[in-house]
Each structure stands twice: as structure tokens, then as C-alpha cells.
Design a protein around this nucleic acid. Structure first.
Lengths: 225, 225
DNA sequence: ATCAGGTGAGTAAGCACTTACTTAATGCAG
DNA sequence: CTGCATTAAGTAAGTGCTTACTCACCTGAT
């Protein structure tokens, strides 16, 4: 019998916090696959390789378990890292007022992140539909900050006369729409890429060009290579 | 006690097919609010004002009830009607090669439809996450047809030299992304319109302008009023 | 009298969650 | 190193309740 396979089905004893983390991971996987009410505590226990009682030794209720996922995810990679943090190319492009570079590197990082964390995206969608607090907090903090940041840059470039004078938030919404809708297609609706199969680099470049021409004041042809 | 309130809680007898339709409507409302596994057959019965047994007299199982919703919705308004059917202004704009008009009227109709049928949109999302067949069929037929139609128009206008020579599907994806993402914000994430509060007319016009400038070959300023 | 519309009171399985208990690692005094 | 108390990791077998679904039985209009 194989032990220590990946993470599940470890029959032996395990330090408390390690098992706790494992249960958390199992719950995350299942909630993101089947939603909150579609997942049973028995499923979570089975995937963790322990009895149901252990789940309730670590988390007092199914609800608390859900809440703990959010905390764990928030403190780990992803959530607290905005698409411009540790995105040197984008920050450099902002410095240089290279608008195409800004949008391209922002979009590229976003698409890459979506693709790398499909389970989290699904969880986010479930929580939005099920009206758990995760969604509200995420969109109230994270998304709001994105609008502030990107919108701020656009406003500055409008002052420079580089962009048309329309509500920057509409430009942000358009651009995020392209990115998120594209990821949604790949994750949810057209996982086989039957309608459109392009890599993240092509997508980010196309969307960046589109939004830039769409929002630019001077009808520049943005002839970068 | 109030009887005959809206549609629910009708205590008296009712013709079979009428009651059936009512149960269907209750199930639709509840599934779209709480998802398939989040809704109980008891809830459905209560909302319909009948006993649970009646639900199973009309539908042999909860699954079949879900399936019947799809059939009913498909045959009724909405699903089989593409955003260009009974959209004379858009068809006229196509005839006149008024690109801005085409995108504007398409977008406007789409946004209006999303807003009018929030419950259906939610159901569609739930079914995409839960991987019921509804989502697959919808996106396989409806969405595919939209790409064909809009993409076809764009290809024709590219031949005219009006649009840049990029994959028309990327333009369609960008445009649908703006529209759907905007609706998603309004329906799911920012129902209070705290980030951006614009009416459908403004949104459709902004998105249409954006996509047109983004995709146009000649950097025209599209000075329509 | 018929029969479609409608029900109360089930059933077996499944649910979140608990209790009473066993097992294995870790000290630490002699 | 032994022997034993302590404690954390773990479970089998429940608890009461809910679930999807059934069945024997009404009821009232034609």
C-alpha cells in the first residue's frame, strides 16, 4: 500500500495542524467542484482519509470550515497580491507611459493567474451565486482596488491628453470584461477551446491593443513591435 | 389570508397543465436562487401551494424537473431568440453598414435581456458550475451562433477594408466580454452599483464605441450623434 | 359513478454533528 | 532502559433531523 501519495489518504497519524491543513485543502477542492450545499462533510472526510469526527474536531461546523478556507486563501498567495505587485514589466511600462505595455502586462498576469487557480475562480463564482461573504469581501476589496489603480492611471493619461475623456471606470470595466470573459470561457463554458483557442500572450496583446485604440485620444496606430 | 396573490399559494383546484406550469415556475425561481442541490422538493411544493406528492405526480424526479425547465425555457421567449431577431434597428444598421449602430443595438438588446431575465442568467451560471447539460447545450448552440453571426459581419466589413485584419472571433470575444461582464457585475457582484452605475443605453453606446475604435482600420472618430 | 386534482403519513437513505471510546506518540521518574 | 501517566490523533456508532420519493386514501366537479 502506498503512503504519502500526494496529500490524501494518509492513513497514519499526523500532526494536528498538518491534518487541519489537509482537511482544509480537501474542502477547498470539493467546494470549488460542487459548491457548498453540493459537498458533504463525509466527502471531505473521505478525501482527507480520516473519519467525519476528525473534521468536526478541527472545525466546529461546515460553515466555519468554509470561512477558514477564505482566511487561509487570503493569507496565502493570490488574494492579497494585486496584478501589479511583483509585475515589474508593468510598473516599468507605467513609469515610461507605455500604455500598451501597461495593459498588456496587466492582462497577461491576470490571465495567467486565472488559469493557474481555476479552483479558486470556481469557488469565487459559487460563493457569488450562493451569496456567501467570500464573494462580497473579494469584490468589495480586491476588485474595488483594481478599479482605483487602473482608473487612476487612465485618469492621469487623460490629463496628459493621451486618452479620450470618458469615465475611466468604463474603460476599466471594458478591459476587465475582456479578460474575465475570456478566462470564464476557458474555465467554464468552452473548456475544449472549440470556439476560440489562443494562448494568453496573444489574448493579452489583442485585448490591450483593442482597449488602447478604443480609448486613445489620438487615433494612433500604436505601432509597437 | 390573502389568496391569488401573485401566482403562488393558490389553494383551490387547478387544471393539471396549469399546476404543472406553476410548479415548473417555482422550481425555476428556487433553482436560480439557490442552485440545484441547495433547493429541496419541499421548498418547491410550498412555493407552489401544494403538497410534495403533487410535485412528484407531475415530475417523476427532481432531475426530470430540472430538465423540464430547460425544455420549457427553450420553447418560450428568450433562448431561441437571438439578439438580432426582432431587432430591426440592428438589422437596418447592418444593411447600411453603420458599424456603430450594429454594435450599439446588439449590445443594448443583450444588456436589456440580461437585466430582464436575471433568474435565467443565474440558472445558467449554476448549471455551468454544476456541469448540468443546460450550460453545455446553451453555449454549444446559442453562443456558437452568436460568434458565427457577429463574426461573419465583421469578416465582411474587413473585406470592405473597414476593420483591421485580426481574427473576428477575438473582436466578438472582446465585445461579448464587455457586455457579459457588465451584466455580471450588475447581477452578481455589485448589485448596488457601487463601483459603476450607468444605464444600459450609456453602457451599450460606450462599449460599441470602444470596440469600434479598437477594431476599425481607419482611425475614424465615428462622429455620430 | 367517475376520475383528475390533491393530500397525510409514511419510508429508507442521507445529512450535519456528537458521544464514548481506542490507539499511538511523548515524555519522565526510577 | 523500563514502566507508566499523559495527551493528542483517531474512530465506530450513534443522534435527531432532512431528503427525495411513495402510497393509500380523500374530494368535488361533471
Amino acid at each position: 500500500m502506498i503512503k504519502d501519495l500526494f496529500k490524501c489518504d494518509q492513513h497514519g497519524r499526523m500532526p494536528g495542524d498538518q491534518r487541519r491543513a489537509q482537511i482544509l485543502q480537501s474542502a477547498f477542492d470539493l467546494f470549488s467542484q460542487k459548491g457548498f450545499s453540493g459537498t458533504t462533510t463525509k466527502d471531505i472526510a473521505r478525501l482527507s482519509g480520516v473519519s467525519e469526527a476528525m473534521v468536526f474536531k478541527h472545525f466546529s461546523s461546515k460553515d466555519e470550515l468554509y470561512g477558514a478556507i477564505l482566511e487561509a486563501k487570503k493569507c496565502s498567495e493570490g488574494l492579497h497580491k494585486y496584478p501589479w505587485e511583483s509585475n515589474e514589466p508593468m510598473l516599468a511600462a507605467m513609469e515610461a507611459k507605455d500604455d500598451l505595455g501597461v495593459f498588456y502586462h496587466f492582462g497577461r498576469q491576470a490571465l495567467e493567474k486565472h488559469q493557474a487557480d481555476i479552483a479558486f475562480m470556481r469557488l469565487l463564482f459559487y460563493s457569488a451565486l450562493e451569496e456567501h461573504e467570500l464573494a462580497e469581501r473579494f469584490f468589495g476589496e480586491f476588485v474595488h482596488e483594481i478599479y482605483r489603480f487602473l482608473g487612476g492611471y487612465i485618469a492621469k493619461r487623460q490629463a496628459d491628453g493621451a486618452f479620450r475623456k470618458i469615465d475611466p471606470r468604463i474603460i476599466v470595466r471594458s478591459f476587465l470584461g475582456m479578460l474575465l470573459h475570456h478566462s470564464l470561457n476557458n474555465i467554464l463554458w468552452d473548456t475544449k477551446r472549440r470556439i476560440l483557442d489562443i494562448d494568453n500572450e496573444t489574448a493579452a496583446r489583442s485585448f490591450a491593443e483593442m482597449i488602447l485604440r478604443g480609448a486613445a485620444a489620438t487615433p494612433s496606430t500604436t505601432d509597437n513591435n
